[in-house]
């Protein structure tokens, strides 16, 4: 009999600290599968963010580096410049990437740094118990927007892919979700494309993944997936925003 579900070699077989229904575990599993399939475990270096995914280095069996909150793109730059032949990716949440680390992500993209960024947008600060994120939707309730995010006081959800796609240095920019097996397969393909972009030395790639945080959305897992499909993806439309293969 053939095993149809097995743990990827690069994924360490240990319980994670993620809550039930959390998207981080799915995304990290996809990364491990891709590393196995591309056979790049020995030459991949990952950056873990400050956020719920901080312990990603306990789950992925590759060289990994922690970075200060928001700074993974700069740390990744420092590593990639030393080892241009290695595959360097940063894994970041929305607070990390789109609030405190906005300058770093824009300038890393603008330098055309040949790294891959995996951006997990769960519209909330998970690790610090559910405050507003730069990607929190209008009217979405969080600990710090108890009556819902108001554009007047809190501004608007920040669309990172749209911003980065107009930067000359970026090469592959896409947004996806993990709400269904179909979307998970699509996400995996886009992540592969991100790694391929780097391996072929095309430059900066970023894949944004709309991901559930049922705990701080105060929803069931099923409701969370529905929320992404029906609400979140209205503000954050899925798709490919920039692709070096379709540019002349």
């Amino acid at each position: 009999m053939e095993a149809i579900y097995k743990t990827p070699k690069t994924l360490i077989d240990t319980p994670t600290h993620y809550c039930p229904g959390c998207g981080h575990g799915i995304v990290q599993r996809l990364i491990a599968e891709i590393i196995d399939e591309m056979d790049i475990r020995g030459k991949t270096i990952g950056l873990a963010p400050v956020g719920c995914a901080v312990l990603a280095y306990n789950y992925l069996d590759i060289d990994m580096c922690e970075a200060a909150h928001g700074r993974p793109p700069s740390v990744a730059t420092g590593i990639k410049r030393v080892h241009p032949e290695k595959i360097v990716f940063s894994y970041q949440g929305d607070g990390d990437l789109a609030a405190i680390g906005t300058a770093e992500i824009i300038h890393t993209a603008n330098r055309g740094e040949n790294i891959t960024v995996i951006f997990v947008n769960n519209a909330v600060y998970g690790m610090t118990n559910g405050q507003m994120a730069p990607t929190t939707l209008i009217n979405q309730k969080t600990l710090t927007t108890p009556h819902g995010r108001s554009e007047k006081n809190d501004g608007y959800p920040l669309r990172v892919c749209e911003i980065l796609s107009v930067i000359d240095g970026s090469r592959f920019i896409a947004r996806t979700s993990i709400t269904s097996p179909k979307n998970i397969i699509k996400t995996k393909q886009l992540l592969e494309k991100g790694f391929k972009t780097q391996i072929q030395e095309k430059g900066f790639s970023l894949i944004e993944i709309l991901s559930p945080c049922p705990v701080y959305w105060r929803m069931s897992s099923v409701e969370s997936l529905k929320f992404i499909d029906e609400e979140m993806s209205k503000t954050f439309p899925l798709g490919i925003f920039k692709d070096w293969e379709n540019q002349n």
Binding site: C65, A68, R71, S74, G78, R81, H83, E104
Partner: peptide
């Protein structure tokens, strides 16, 4: 690299040192 801020500089140093 002339960076965008001293934050970026020290964190690139962090990366290159880690490497």
């Amino acid at each position: 690299i002339q960076v965008e801020s001293e934050l970026a500089a020290i964190n690139m140093v962090y990366g290159s040192a880690a490497a």
